[in-house]
């Protein structure tokens, strides 16, 4: 086993968990606000496409980041309009958005870049990377703290920030209230729709950034469907963590670790399909564990 646990593995860990973490943080806010957002996959995908396009068009990672976030935001606003304001079912809207993202990014890839399947170019500038001076010198795991993208640090910073937002901020209180009982929130003079839209906006931004991590940091290219199920893993994390942000981080790291490990094992000759399937099997197992208390739900008296 120690064959795999080398510095390079830990060096690669953050780039695997960061996209999942960002999307799961956003999804957790939505869940707390009472929006069942399973369009994380699609939002991430349009973020990835837009970040690549922004970075390519201006040959700058800043615009890439901006485009990615803006595209995620736009997708989330679309979600909010059709679901929160027009009363559409969250699941149906999510399905629509996911298909739209898949088709739209493939369409634009061909219409704008004339490429089919994937597009890469030296004009796509990657995000800058930093390391943490003290921690990166720790043996073996120190790699996780060396030369990671801007977004890795942002994602880690967001964990305590969002936890504090929920616990200490009036917006956090209202957000939790919106998920518990929107009618009661209205009676308290707060519009749950506004709160939910705000939660979606944050979620959209984070998913857009998650996409940027994929297309202008992990690699500098865009592939059709490159979110490849990470959004669904994020949904699983959302379902099992119930907006406990530190737990979200921990679970995202575990999934990232499985991804990273799978990548290494692949290098050793294991068929790619097996390692690719691992996170989903893990997700099923983890959910079964998380839901074990929900079994036999004899309704609790209200």
């Amino acid at each position: 086993m120690s064959v795999f646990l080398d510095p390079a593995l830990f060096q690669s860990l953050p780039r695997f968990f960061t996209p999942i973490l960002l999307a799961a943080l956003g999804g957790s806010l939505c869940q707390r606000a009472g929006v069942f957002n399973i369009a994380l996959e699609g939002l991430m995908l349009i973020g990835a496409f837009a970040a690549m396009a922004g970075s390519y068009a201006f040959q700058s990672w800043e615009t890439g980041l901006l485009f990615g976030a803006a595209a995620g935001l736009g997708g989330a606003l679309l979600f909010a309009w059709f679901s929160v304001w027009r009363g559409g079912d969250d699941i149906v809207v999510s399905i629509g958005l996911n298909i739209l993202a898949l088709g739209g990014s493939a369409y634009l890839l061909r219409a704008v870049f004339g490429a089919r399947g994937s597009f890469d170019s030296p004009r796509i500038i990657a995000l800058p990377q930093f390391g943490l001076p003290g921690l990166r010198d720790i043996p073996v795991i120190g790699g996780a703290f060396a030369a990671q993208s801007l977004l890795v640090w942002l994602a880690l910073f967001l964990v305590p920030l969002l936890a504090a937002l929920l616990a200490r901020h009036s917006f956090g209180l209202r957000l939790r209230a919106a998920g518990e009982n929107p009618v009661a929130l209205a009676a308290a003079g707060v519009n749950a729709r506004v709160i939910r839209t705000e939660a979606l906006v944050i979620c959209g931004l984070l998913c857009g950034l998650a996409g940027a991590q994929l297309s202008i940091s992990n690699v500098t290219l865009f592939t059709e469907g490159m979110s490849s199920g990470r959004g669904w893993i994020a949904v699983v994390i959302v379902l099992m963590c119930n907006a406990r942000m530190w737990l979200v981080l921990l679970t995202a790291v575990v999934f990232g670790f499985i991804d990273a490990l799978g990548f290494r094992i692949q290098g050793l000759g294991m068929p790619q399909q097996f390692t690719d399937a691992l996170p989903y099997l893990l997700a099923l197992g983890v959910l079964a564990l998380a839901y074990r208390n929900h079994r036999n739900p004899a309704k609790d008296q209200g």
Binding site: R176, A177, A184
Partner: peptide, 28 residues
């Protein structure tokens, strides 16, 4: 009742009347 079952009694009382600081923090 217009209550939030998962929130604490104090939080239920405060929702919508948090008297938050300018930065939005609630002085619980």
């Amino acid at each position: 009742f217009m209550l939030f079952p998962g929130l604490s009694v104090l939080e239920n009382i405060l929702v919508g009347a948090e008297k938050a600081t300018r930065s939005g923090l609630v002085d619980y």
